[in-house]
């Protein structure tokens, strides 16, 4: 008893504030801040028109004023990277927002109603979870045509159950707390208890999971764009650029694929690390 209490005193002290993100956590946060800034102001930052084609400069390496050189159509690579950030993040943002809202709602319903509602939803989560998202995206794309919206919807269907499963377990624990019972006895409506009390207490967990999910989403949507199922060329987009650079890569000009690929991976890792650190810091792993 006392030892546990002493330990908990120590733990609460240790878990104070942002300083416990650690160096890596801060690094991840810095990378994300830069990316978000670029996504917001990419067009203003770009030194050149990202869509201006000049075949004369096709696959030309770095020259003054064009630090990354040009792509296979002679467009300025740095400008395309900067402008492409937005397109590469808008999709994941929509995807994460949709699946977080859907996953949270379903998980809360399952945890609150329990019984057969919970059993049905859990079984649904398990089945949907087992179905690969990329396959679903390909299926939907063949049915409705390729495009970012279709890719986002397909991946939302894949992401929702995975968040739902995770959150349901945590929500079950939270709804089992005595304060929830006390509120029921005090005559609070179900909606009030869930929305004003249970949900806010789950927010740290949800936020951390959403950030981790964002990392996966940049990679998955980038991957779909690479396959031609997401963002369509000639829009500047990292996934599209990785694919567009492939022929040049084979001819010995890897810059486009490498640069866009690095951005995607860096973003994915940064979000993953930050989400993980936040989860640890808030004690909601």
């Amino acid at each position: 008893m006392s030892v546990a209490q002493v330990a908990s005193v120590v733990r609460t002290r240790r878990r104070s504030r942002l300083s416990h993100l650690g160096v890596i956590g801060w690094l991840a946060l810095a990378v994300i801040v830069v990316f978000v800034f670029v996504a917001a102001f990419g067009e203003a930052l770009a030194p050149d028109d990202p869509n201006a084609i000049d075949i004369a400069y096709a696959n030309v390496g770095p020259i003054p004023g064009h630090p990354l050189g040009f792509d296979d159509l002679g467009r300025d690579l740095l400008s395309r990277l900067l402008v492409g950030a937005r397109s590469s993040f808008v999709g994941p943002l929509a995807l994460v927002a949709l699946s977080t809202v859907a996953g949270t709602t379903l998980a809360l319903i399952a945890a609150w109603r329990r019984g057969w509602t919970d059993a049905t939803l859990s079984a649904g989560f398990d089945i949907a979870f087992a179905f690969p998202g990329i396959l679903l995206a390909i299926l939907l794309a063949t049915l409705f045509g390729a495009g970012l919206a279709v890719a986002v919807i397909a991946l939302t269907l894949a992401y929702t159950p995975s968040l739902g499963r995770l959150l349901r377990a945590t929500a079950l624990r939270e709804t089992g707390m005595e304060y929830v019972k006390a509120f029921r006895v005090m005559g609070y409506s179900d909606v009030r208890i869930v929305v004003r009390h249970v949900l806010p207490n789950l927010m740290p967990f949800i936020i951390a999971q959403a950030i981790i999910m964002f990392g996966y989403a940049t990679l998955d949507l980038g991957g779909l764009s690479f396959l031609g199922l997401g963002v369509q060329p000639p829009t500047a987009d990292w996934g599209v650029m990785v694919a567009a650079g492939a022929p040049a890569l084979l001819q010995g000009y890897p810059t486009q694929t490498l640069a866009a690929g690095t951005c995607l991976v860096l973003a994915a890792v940064a979000f993953g690390v930050l989400g993980d650190r936040l989860a640890r810091m808030w004690g909601v792993e």
Partner: peptide, 17 residues
């Protein structure tokens, strides 16, 4: 009913939000 009967639980650490 809340105005006729109330309850205080055992665990002071989990009975408040």
């Amino acid at each position: 009913r809340a105005q006729s009967l109330q309850i205080v639980f055992q665990d002071p650490y989990s009975s408040l939000d």
